[in-house]
Amino acid sequence: MAKVSKRFKGIQEKVEDRLYGFGEGVALAKELATAKFDESIELHVRLGVDPRHADQQVRSTVVLPHGTGRTKRVLVIAGGEKVKEAEDAGADFVGGEDMVAKIEGGWLDFDAVIATPDVMKVVGKLGKVLGPRGLMPSAKTNTVTFDVAAAIAEIKAGRVEFRVDKTGITHNAVGKASFSKEQLEENAATLLRAILKARPSAVKGQYVKSLTVSSTMGVGISVDPNLAQKEVSGE
């Protein structure tokens, strides 16, 4: 049996066995982030979808108003004049087929990939490498585009991608414990609104099954999904 640290046991004792309000849950997650580093505050949303069906996939992006507290390293795969545009816009890495070959060789020191439509035939070879890591460029997430400058700016400003995993849950960081309660709540509300907006038309019945907020080294705090939806919609 794994040994529970005194710190973790103290955190567990502060979480009541009940459903919290949305803002209340976010504030508690921040309060309980007591590790020796700046923990991320995470929002986990279980949706009433079956990811095995294409018409029930949930995947999109949203720009968090206060960012995530982490600067993302952006790779742009392009050619021609788009290479200079990407460099001028602040991309961390820029290239064409040379970058594809580098990734095939095992290089993965980046957090986001943008590609122009004309190079996707080459980038497509990376599907098995980038796909499982959620890094494959896609028109749905605006990472396959000729407007590379705008895409880079959004990612650097705090754009995050949300997508359901095979169990129908989205997992996203909404900021750092060092953020104010107001910043964390606004980021979390922005993310939840985007997830609600992305509801597939094929989904019937209850869409948001459960909500959990936690810090990187903390415990899950259960949030009332119905109350949360009312809070973020201003009802």
Score class of each variant (00 low, 15 high):
Met1Arg: 14
Ala2Ser: 15
Val4Leu: 12
Ile11Thr: 13
Arg18His: 01
Glu24Asn: 00
Ala27Leu: 03
Leu28Asp: 06
Thr34His: 11
Thr34Ile: 14
Lys36Gln: 15
Phe37Glu: 02
Asp38Arg: 12
Asp38Leu: 06
Glu39Gln: 11
Glu39Lys: 09
Val45Met: 01
Leu47Gly: 05
Leu47Trp: 05
Arg52Trp: 03
Arg52Lys: 14
Asp55Pro: 00
Gln56Thr: 07
Val58Trp: 10
Leu75Val: 11
Ala78Asn: 08
Gly79Cys: 02
Glu85Gly: 03
Ala89Pro: 03
Val94Asp: 12
Val94Cys: 07
Gly95Pro: 10
Glu97Leu: 13
Lys102Phe: 01
Ile103Met: 08
Glu104Tyr: 03
Gly106Asn: 08
Gly106Leu: 00
Asp109Ala: 12
Asp111Pro: 12
Asp111Trp: 05
Ala112Asp: 03
Val113Arg: 04
Ile114Asn: 00
Pro117Ala: 09
Met120Lys: 09
Val122Asn: 13
Val122Leu: 13
Lys125Val: 08
Lys125Arg: 15
Lys128Met: 14
Val129Gly: 08
Gly131Ala: 00
Met136Gln: 12
Asn142Arg: 14
Val144Asn: 09
Phe146Ile: 15
Val148Phe: 01
Ala149Trp: 00
Ile152Gly: 02
Ile152Pro: 05
Lys156Cys: 03
Ala157Tyr: 01
Gly158Met: 06
Thr170Arg: 05
Val174Lys: 11
Ala177Trp: 02
Ser180Lys: 03
Ser180His: 02
Lys181Cys: 12
Glu186Thr: 10
Leu192Ile: 10
Ala194Ser: 04
Leu196Arg: 07
Val203Met: 05
Thr212Arg: 13
Ser215His: 09
Ser215Ile: 10
Thr216Pro: 11
Gly220Asp: 01
Gly220Arg: 04
Val223Cys: 01
Val223Pro: 02
Pro225Trp: 03
Glu231Val: 13
Glu235Pro: 13
